[in-house]
Design a protein around this nucleic acid. Structure first.
Length: 630
RNA sequence: GGCCCGUUCGUCUAUCGGUUAGGACACCAGGUUUUCAACCUGGUAAGAGGGGUUCGACUCCCCUACGGGCUGCCA
């Protein structure tokens, strides 16, 4: 029996080998960490995984070196604990007494059972801290926190948390058509799409075009085109938010009628001077309208906006699937404008009304909306509507870690198509960016649908890494069926403004696809490598090819040509024929491959010479050889 | 300024109170070879800083630093 990990002092090399080869033993001392970990790993089942190498070249020899842990790694959904648990499974505050009216904003402190009645060691602080003790009657709450849980302390309890209300999932993507489709926006759309599709739900598209000055039909078209390219299909028609403006106004009036909103006659100047004064005095600049409690009988006949009468006491809590429980004190949230003085709705009102009317159950969007979510929840409450499940995902940053902007080059989605990235690779990369499922890196759409969950989304912004994108795209191209690749390549050519394929070129490309796809990371790459089959005689030779075809080489080609004529056009036979000529000349295959490459492609960097011969066919190959033979 | 969010190899991330902190991309070295790739083998490389709680902290708490968001009759 081989010694287990814990019985050796390991070098990093040994560590690696052990991971690869050593069987896991149950005979180690109980305190052996490696053993404990293995027990955990062994407890979970093994799932089939898509392995590129395995798929393309089934070679049992290679399988021997697979990492044992990779195959039995616990899936996130099988983990027993962790911050990644969805809120509905997460114990809100383990051990908390039901009578407890106070909760720590984010997490409960863990305190030993024998610490009952003592000051919290963890935080003695000004923060609300819920003591976790086995004796709830002796719960201690810091004096400063003795703030009654008022009725206005609203909590955004996701509808999904209530088991009785399990509804089919409805997600939406709501871009504003003021420019191209941003790569970050594309990822948001993708998350919504996968989530809905993975749960048999609906994915809706709503164009947020209430800003009439900045919205353009061109931008809308670009967004639809981009989503279509990425393969994100939406249910029903894309709806225009602007079209629903009457309904939005109606809701604003209803809030007015319910006493949850009020008319504010303050002018821009009033607001500005309020803010200036607040700044000067060091007070909060959140606007506090003097019209909040004015009797309607005393309202002037002047333009007004409708503001939400937001609660001023208590707090609003967002139970976010990504960010956790986030608490905003209501005195930090102002009475936002819902209906502008020209009668048009603001974004804040329109999203809520639309999401409600469209039956959206899960709002997955950028975390720049996290604070907005608190304001929006207040509208949901004002109207007595169910609050959707929120998931605020971090934004994507450029390779330098800064916010994405034009200077990062490709920012619009359409640029990625023109650069030759396949949509499947793009989906894979974007899904994996900021979301994880154990160690899985390469996966198919159906795996993504099966695995994707909100709890697997990270909270830190991720950077774009083009190398990894390329790598993943290369794997997807290699794994695709030849026939599926062709239309994608043609779409790429058109997007990149390159000439379309002729019938002959299309046939040739398809014949050579088997070898081209394995070496290309992008379609740009693939087309470049396919050059030999796309061009027709007479070939133009580049400088290096010209050099490779010196008189001696041309002589060899002359000798080779008749031999080739007799070869049966199979790889084995071709190899044998060329090897025989090389041997007769006392040279290696390498020496002969150079001139052959130059003659067949006019370049010195190409696929394998035999692959080229097979792709070109006997007639074309011989013609090209004759062209260059001395 | 106020409020909110974040910080593990260069990058994406795993682990989520006990691991020798794992994987992938990138990088370096070696191998294979018919050029370029691909492929194979090996390697370098990480818990922002400081306190606290704990037998034990990357993991829980606090502070600081840095980054980001919101603070509009923009979305």
């Amino acid at each position: 029996m081989r010694p287990h990990a814990c019985q050796q002092k390991a070098t990093s090399r040994q560590r690696h080998q052990r991971r690869q080869k050593l069987p896991r033993l149950g005979s180690c001392p109980p305190q052996c960490h490696a053993n404990q970990r293995d027990q955990r790993h062994r407890a979970v089942d093994q799932r089939p995984r898509l392995d590129r190498r395995q798929k393309i070249r089934p070679d049992p020899q290679r399988q021997r070196h697979r990492h044992p842990q990779r195959q039995i790694h616990p899936r996130p959904d099988q983990r027993s604990a962790g911050r990644r648990q969805p809120a509905e499974q997460r114990p809100r505050h383990a051990g908390a007494h039901p009578d407890t009216a106070f909760a720590h904003p984010r997490r409960a402190h863990r305190i030993r059972d024998d610490a009952v009645g003592q000051v919290c060691h963890a935080c003695f602080s000004a923060r609300p801290c819920l003591r976790i003790t086995p004796k709830p009657s002796r719960l201690m709450v810091s004096e400063r926190l003795t703030r009654p849980m008022s009725d206005t302390t609203a909590q955004a309890r996701p509808a999904e948390d209530r088991p009785s209300q399990a509804r089919p999932v409805v997600t939406r993507f709501a871009p504003s058509p003021t420019g191209y489709l941003h790569i970050g926006g594309a990822r948001t759309a993708l998350f919504n799409w996968i989530y809905a599709r993975g749960r048999g739900g609906k994915f809706l598209l709503r164009i947020e075009d209430t800003d009439r000055d900045r919205s353009t039909p061109e931008a809308t078209a670009a967004i639809l085109k981009g989503l279509t390219w990425l393969g994100l299909d939406w249910d029903g028609e894309a709806v225009s938010q602007f079209a629903g403006r009457d309904r939005h106004a109606e809701v604003a009036r209803e809030m007015l009628a319910r006493g949850n909103a009020y008319k504010c006659f303050a002018t821009q100047d009033d607001i500005e001077s309020f803010r200036e004064a607040a700044r000067a005095e060091g007070r909060s600049t959140l606007y506090q309208s003097p019209w909040r409690d004015v009797d309607p009988a005393r309202h002037p006949d002047a333009p007004y906006v409708i503001r939400l009468k937001a609660p001023r006491e208590g707090a609003t809590v967002i139970d976010d699937q990504v960010q956790g429980e986030v608490t905003f004190r209501n005195d930090q949230l102002d009475d936002m404008v819902c209906l502008r003085s020209d009668g048009t709705p603001t974004y804040m009102l329109a999203v809520v009304v639309d999401d409600h009317d469209m039956g959206v159950t899960h709002v997955i969007r950028g975390d720049d909306h996290l604070t907005n979510a608190a304001r929006q929840v207040q509208i949901y409450h004002a109207m007595g509507w169910d609050v959707p499940v929120f998931a605020h995902i971090p934004l994507i940053h450029g390779p330098d870690g800064k916010k994405l902007s034009k200077r990062h080059g490709a920012v619009g989605l359409e640029e990625y198509q023109a650069m030759g990235y396949p949509a499947a690779g793009m989906r894979n990369y974007l899904t994996r960016l900021g979301w994880s499922h154990g160690d899985d890196e390469f996966f198919t759409d159906s795996q993504a649908r099966e695995w994707f969950d909100l709890g697997g989304i990270g909270r830190a912004p991720a950077r774009l890494d083009f190398k990894k994108l390329e790598n993943l795209c290369g794997q997807h191209i290699a794994a695709s069926a030849d026939a599926e690749l062709l239309p994608e390549i043609e779409a790429y050519l058109s997007a990149a403004g390159l000439p379309a394929l002729t019938e002959t070129q299309r046939d040739g490309l398809l014949r050579g696809m088997y070898c081209l796809k394995e070496r290309a990371k992008t379609f740009t790459d693939l087309i470049e490598k396919a050059r030999f089959v796309l061009v027709s005689r007479p070939l133009d030779l580049d400088e290096k090819a010209e050099k490779a075809l010196d008189p001696v080489s041309r002589g060899i080609l002359m000798e080779l040509t008749p031999q080739m004529q007799n070869a049966s056009w199979t790889r084995n036979d071709l190899e044998a024929t060329v090897a025989a000529v090389a041997e007769a000349r006392g040279m290696g295959l390498g020496k002969l491959a150079g001139p052959l490459r130059a003659a067949l492609a006019g370049r010195t960097v190409t696929p394998s010479v035999f692959d080229m011969m097979l792709t070109l066919g006997r007639e074309e190959t011989l013609a090209r050889l004759v062209d260059q033979a001395a």
